[in-house]
Design a protein around this nucleic acid. Structure first.
Lengths: 354, 354
DNA sequence: CAGGCTAATTGGATCGATCCAAATACGCAA
DNA sequence: TTGCGTATTTGGATCGATCCAATTAGCCTG
């Protein structure tokens, strides 16, 4: 009927700064200064306090600190598609930089759902994050960024943007990447080139499509062969028929990303056709499988990890200086020519491994 | 020389519960009760308070709440290798469940470094997480779990464990998975089978190796052909020579995971050999590339996302009831027979897409 | 030795919520 | 009208840190 006599109340055993102060024979204020590495404290005192902290097993209570101090040393990562290996790499890159600066990141997978993204943002605000890195879900309204401003919540957009006017952004030069691919295909003699894949509207789609259009026009070629389809292997495979049974069938398919390209190659194979011989196929991202498929996929390499690192760096800078000038970091991409575009097939000895 | 006159102090504009109370004409206590959904509050009052919150744009300050309340609604995710697509999927699964319960997760990539893992754990404690999901870095000492106990920090191990005696764990039945592979290879007539890959010692390695040994002995076969190598494509390729130039060369290589297996297949090819014809090759994980390689890789499918979900569920249960009985969830794996093990080659029409 | 200056330390108020015991309001029976 | 039980509401103390103005200690100089 009563509490068990020996019941040690849960969580009551946490050592506080006051207890450390008692043990070290100084005031709370001094311990607090030591915690924050203030130069005001005498070396001898500092050591005594640190010894006390070690002896008692003191753990800093950031929640308490946050109540007074401005910062929490936390940031939010809102990723539009966490299960995609590309974003995994990106996240790892962010983690590298944040860890080095003593920050911890909340992670959230918005799964391309704006309302989920909204929910997570609220939650992050409740947790008082110092800023967020956002890969905006497709369909995100531009008004969101204004709200972030009003909330005074520093935000860096990564890989995609709702708007990048006057805002921090880290991404890849998708347009130039696609243009390089077109140039390469044209140099191989192709003139009917299709742009394949992508259903959602966001800046990353727009940029690639713009690259396609710009390069085609530059070469005086028609840029109207655009097939939108979901970014899955399956849809890539299914689009093969549509592509080949047109009045003027293209001789090359420039795919939105590797996943679609790999799917398309499977679709061709299932029809007894082969990429690189019957249809030139190219991808985008250079996922590990690209080097591995037969024929190996010509694609554009982007360094996901590095983008993650840059985005984190931008955010930390913005947190430190909210008024500073906005920065855009656009990393270059790199054309990786393999066999799927019809270039001469090399010996497998030279295939790249990862 | 003085502050600009209009300088609105940063962060001073946050609405507090007290202001909501004033606006709604009730006390702070009442607002607090509304926030926590207490049934004590009269419906009419509740509505008035909620209207005030909406009108003022109130944001709950969890940091402040944490100071008094026991819970933070946050957990930590310590992943040993975040950039691996497998873990990306796992993380997405955890996120699904945590989101539904209103929790947010801190993420940390330990990158197989115990000291990094240690650092993150301290940081999570500072942030007062309610619990952690741990994929222990290779080399983690068993003593860590005791410390977690002492800290009263609920912990669920996932995919690997340091020790699972009396502890929560969610993972895959690696041993059974490997045994199935051995059985299949034996049924195809193989008797000299090598176990290839893995350098780090952890439970996931031990379980697979145990499966190999058990099944081989069961069939009365020698289980001593074990080649340890790093889990990269490159090492997989390099191991091919070693494998083939032994006095009694094996006829099958059961690889630790798909990455090594895919590498090994490339190594064979570079020597003019072919998996499934000159050497049976199998993998583990069923990564997307497995279905895509030529020949397609026979492997064992595990559902990463589901494991993530289960691990999160276990953790939430443990947080709710710290004294409850420990639970182990072992999900089954599934043999996926493709061409790399020497089974008859099917038409590509039947190849599975993802 | 007083006075001034720097270096180091300190106590009390404070952040924004929760907890708890106590106060108040209301309805109804005696 | 009083008394009492139930339903609501409330003020003050509290969590564990930080901030700030004020104090104390130590040293040098004239």
């Amino acid at each position: 009927m009563t509490q068990p006599p020996d019941s040690s109340r849960p969580g009551n055993d946490r050592i506080t700064l006051t207890e450390v102060a008692g043990h070290a024979g100084v005031s709370r204020s001094t311990v607090s200064l030591v915690l924050r590495g203030s130069p005001l404290v005498a070396a001898e005192t500092r050591e005594r306090v640190q010894a006390a902290m070690a002896a008692l097993g003191y753990i800093y209570n950031r929640g308490a600190a946050t109540l007074r101090a401005a910062r929490t040393q936390t940031v939010g990562l809102l990723v539009c598609e966490l299960n995609n290996p590309f974003y995994a790499e990106l996240t790892a890159g962010m983690d590298d930089v944040l860890d080095a600066e003593g920050f911890v990141a909340f992670i959230a997978n918005t799964a391309e759902q704006p309302e989920r993204q909204e929910r997570f943002l609220q939650r992050m605000r409740e947790h008082n994050v110092d800023g967020v890195i956002l890969c905006p879900a497709a369909g995100t309204q531009g008004e969101l960024l204004d709200r972030l401003d009003r909330w005074r919540l520093p935000c860096v957009q990564a890989l995609r943007f709702v708007s990048d006017r006057g805002r921090d952004y880290a991404g890849v030069d998708y347009q130039a990447g696609v243009e390089t691919v077109v140039d390469h295909l044209v140099s191989l003699g192709h003139s009917r080139i299709a742009f394949v894949g992508g259903t959602l509207d966001h800046s990353a789609y727009a940029a690639r499509h713009a690259g396609f259009t710009a390069a085609m026009r530059r070469h005086g070629l028609a840029d109207d062969l655009v097939l939108r389809c979901p970014l899955t292997r399956r849809s890539g495979a299914e689009v093969a028929d549509d592509l080949l049974h047109r009045p003027q069938a293209p001789t090359a398919a420039l795919c939105y990303n590797d996943v679609v390209a790999l799917g398309l190659m499977l679709g061709l194979e299932a029809r007894g056709l082969r990429a690189g011989r019957d249809l030139a196929v190219t991808g985008f991202d250079d996922v590990p499988e690209a080097a591995l498929s037969r024929p190996a996929l010509t694609t554009v390499a982007t360094s996901a990890r590095q983008i993650g690192q840059e985005a984190a760096r931008l955010l930390l800078r913005r947190i430190a200086d909210p008024q500073g000038p906005p920065e855009r970091i656009i990393l270059p991409s790199r054309l990786v020519v393999r066999q799927s575009c019809g270039a001469p097939i090399h010996s497998t000895h030279h295939r790249d491994l990862s």
